[in-house]
């Protein structure tokens, strides 16, 4: 290995090491932080809107919320309103008791759409099913977050196979191509 090669590799390692030592991981993306109704909660009175709060303010464009009732009807009313990190989705009068699914899509400030869902269960009939009238939403409650981009169990084997096959392939191919030159 020539002197120049060693110098460049050494420089890269030192530079990389310094930055790795100094830098903290970057700030997080937008994620759902709190909601009302609470995710997984059972409530008696139908809320007039769904509130979502994110860790960072999402873009005001591209947000969509769908609220699907147990009767397969959609109960969102009009587009969601975003103010800072807070999203408000007005609702139509809710219908029969059962599980309501809230699916949302917001765009993080780096332009990547994020999707997520939460659920709540209405224990008594809503206004549209002859129940009591809508109420103001309850205060926010924190959500438990989970990450969904975990790799499958075979991923480390894929990495190992790629490294072994490509590296040994490059060694063999290089030797074959340069045979007779040395």
């Amino acid at each position: 290995m020539s002197y120049a090669v060693r110098r460049v590799i050494f420089g890269a390692v030192v530079a990389g090491g310094l930055v790795l030592a100094a830098a903290a991981p970057a700030a997080a993306h937008t994620a759902l932080e709190a909601s009302s109704p609470k995710d997984g909660s059972r409530i008696g009175a139908a809320p007039s809107e769904v509130l979502l709060r994110f860790t960072e303010a999402p873009l005001t464009t591209g947000a969509h919320v769908i609220v699907a009732g147990p009767d397969a009807h959609f109960y969102q009313s009009g587009p969601p309103q975003i103010s800072g990190a807070r999203l408000t989705q007005p609702l139509k009068p809710l219908g029969p008791p059962g599980t309501y699914r809230v699916e949302f899509r917001v765009v993080a400030d780096d332009g990547h759409p994020d999707v997520g869902e939460m659920r709540f269960t209405l224990t008594k009939p809503g206004p549209a099913a002859g129940g009591a009238s809508q109420v103001r939403p309850a205060p926010f409650s924190q959500v438990s977050a989970d990450t969904v981009n975990d790799a499958p169990a075979w991923a480390p084997w894929l990495e190992l196979a790629a490294v072994v096959i490509l590296a040994s392939g490059a060694v063999l191919f290089g030797r074959r191509m340069t045979r007779g030159l040395s």
């Binding site: 993306h29 995710d39 997984g40 990547h112 994020d114 997520g116 869902e117 959500v143 438990s144 981009n149």
Partner: peptide
């Protein structure tokens, strides 16, 4: 691809 610092919510 969502980087690992992206917390995508799916309730438990």
């Amino acid at each position: 691809t969502a980087s690992p610092d992206t917390i995508l919510l799916h309730s438990g």
